[in-house]
Design a protein around this nucleic acid. Sequence first.
DNA 1: CTCAGATCCTGTGCGC
DNA 2: TGCGCACAGGATCTGA
Length: 272
Amino acid sequence: MPELPEVETVKKGLELLLTKQQVIIEISKSSKKLRNSLSLRQLSQVKNQKILKIFRKAKYIIFELSDYYIISHLGMTGSWRIEDEQRKHDHIKIHLNDRRILTYNDPRRFGVFDIIKKMDWLSDSRFTHLGIDPVLESQFNGNYLFKITRKSKKPIKNFIMDQSQIVGVGNIYASESLYLAGIHPMTQAFRLSEMSCHRITEAIKETLFNAIECGGTTISDFRQAGGSKGYFQNLLLVYGRENKACNFCNSLIESQMLGGRNTFWCPKCQKV
DNA sequence: CTCAGATCCTGTGCGC
DNA sequence: TGCGCACAGGATCTGA
């Protein structure tokens, strides 16, 4: 579900809900495991810890506590909300000192909820292999992409979705960005010219920033931390628009599975 | 080493 | 109406 703009949106929502450096009074989990398993002992470590700060690292949301980091990844269907009521697929309940309950819900359970000591942050394998962040790091430009693509035979769409190269771009924004850049998704990465790389990085930045401004894309179940929908789905140019007319040239948008993921492009506007 | 495919799950929507 | 199948925003492991 969530790519960089959705994660950024949830992170901002959580910041607004947790402005007072709330303290975790109690924390509990369901019997079902998420991607990772977490013992009750690990869970209880965060009791009485203050929530100092919330930030995003790639597609992870990190809660900085006094002595620990809470690591949250939304997988495909994860969401955070504040609500007393219990719902199906609620997996984590965090009771705060202001009597509110922060809940993590995740039907497919591809998400991650983990707790690590702050000092273990740098050696955590989930974070050591991450690529550049197009939104947070200014070195992300055409020259940079040109350099890192020289040895890859992968289709560029798969390349920009590879979190060890570029973080935050998922299946929707990969198709959208390449459409905006006028580059065919199956172009092998090493064949791209420096100019093409420049167009791709600029298109990725524009797409991600616009989607963040829209509060993300809600196809079916994505919700912001406050429960509202994003509205970038109304601005999608190719994703989910198979056999519909390209807004620019009127050709019919094509689609095909690429690396197991559905991929959309305009056969006329996007060149290999 | 690189890369494609299978895999982990549940829910939804479609064709029959 | 009901059933089975394909597919869904991600990341990781396996094996070619």
